[in-house]
């Protein structure tokens, strides 16, 4: 029996459990549109979009060993490029163009940042995200004599709630199932080896540069997709898409979910629902909840050991 077969055999039970959990979650999601409740559908779409964003973060953390506090960069960039292109062309062209350009740019950016150490990576991604947030307030485009953008942002075509629900559902289910299968397959082993120790991975012949490129490409691709879905849901793109709370959302989810894919989806749903409830009671009060979770994150990590936080503790000695 080869190493790959033994690995597959050992993880078969865990993989099946995870797939069963995902099946239950997606069965519930599948039934929501039949309720004909607009608000419920809307909140589920938003949660699915945030789940997709959190999964992109999870991929870089779990297989690339990097805590990315700049995940709002592909999220916001894709929405911005799509909205700007939409001013000059039709929706489909702008969607594909926005997604591709954003994926390409952020892949290159994150790939170049892989050359620096893990701690600096966190800082630089975070600072870059805030810089984009500041700059995005000044992005204006003049088309046919009219000026668009600035603090107001850009408009996008409105999409029916059912088609957006179906699209988000298809993307979330396929991404999470593929990631779940990948996590337990032997193909994830080189990624995990690279994540834990880059030098050792290099020494056993793993093509590290190729892995880095793959990790950044997949992360950027998924995060850009979630940004476009978000812009379509609100039919609007604003500088807030680069804001701090978008960047820290997946980090908070990882603290609550212990980096398990079904838990990531559930934690995203819980946070979105709770944020919406708190927001209706007192506007923006949900950010206080985020702040408290961030402050307590090292303590929470004692109970919920996400791989990223575990690595902080290891690096701390």
């Amino acid at each position: 029996m080869s190493i790959a077969d033994r690995y597959m055999e050992k993880n078969k039970k865990n993989r099946n459990t995870m797939l069963t959990q995902l099946f239950i979650i997606f069965s519930v999601m599948f039934l929501i549109p039949f309720t004909n409740n607009y608000f419920l559908n809307w909140i589920f779409i938003l949660s699915m979009i945030y789940s997709i964003l959190s999964l992109s973060w999870f991929f870089m953390d779990e297989f690339g060993g990097r805590v990315n506090l700049g995940i709002a960069i592909p999220f916001g960039l894709s929405a911005y490029i799509t909205s700007i292109t939409y001013l000059m062309s039709n929706l489909w062209v702008s969607l594909i163009f926005g997604w591709m350009i954003s994926t390409a740019c952020t892949t290159l950016f994150f790939y170049l940042l892989y050359r620096i150490d893990r701690v600096s990576f966190v800082f630089i991604t975070f600072i870059s995200c805030i810089l984009l947030w500041i700059v995005s307030h000044s992005v204006v485009v003049k088309v046919d004599g009219f000026i668009y953008g600035g603090e107001e942002g850009f408009s996008l075509s409105s999409t029916s709630i059912l088609s957006l629900y179906t699209t988000s559902f298809v993307f979330l289910s396929s991404i999470s199932i593929v990631l779940a299968m990948f996590s337990f397959s032997h193909m994830s082993l080189p990624f995990k080896a690279f994540r834990d120790d880059e030098k050792s991975a290099r020494s056993v012949g793993i093509k590290v540069e190729r892995l880095k490129l793959l990790i950044t490409l997949i992360t950027s691709c998924i995060a850009s997709l979630s940004g476009i879905l978000y812009a379509l849901l609100f039919s609007h793109t604003s500088p807030e898409m680069f804001s701090i709370h978008i960047s820290i959302f997946p980090f908070i989810v990882s603290i609550l979910s212990r980096n398990s894919i079904p838990r990531i989806i559930l934690a995203s749903f819980l946070l979105v629902a709770l944020s919406d409830y708190m927001n209706s009671a007192l506007p923006n009060s949900y950010l206080l909840l985020y702040a408290i979770i961030l402050i307590l994150s090292p303590k929470l990590a004692n109970f919920r050991v996400s791989s990223a936080i575990l690595r902080w503790r290891i690096s701390d000695g």
């Binding site: 980090f251 950010l287 985020y290 702040a291 979770i293 961030l294 402050i295 307590l296 994150s297 090292p298």
Partner: peptide, 9 residues
């Protein structure tokens, strides 16, 4: 990260 949480709070 704690200082970020404190700032947001």
């Amino acid at each position: 990260i704690i200082s970020l949480g404190y700032s947001i709070a």
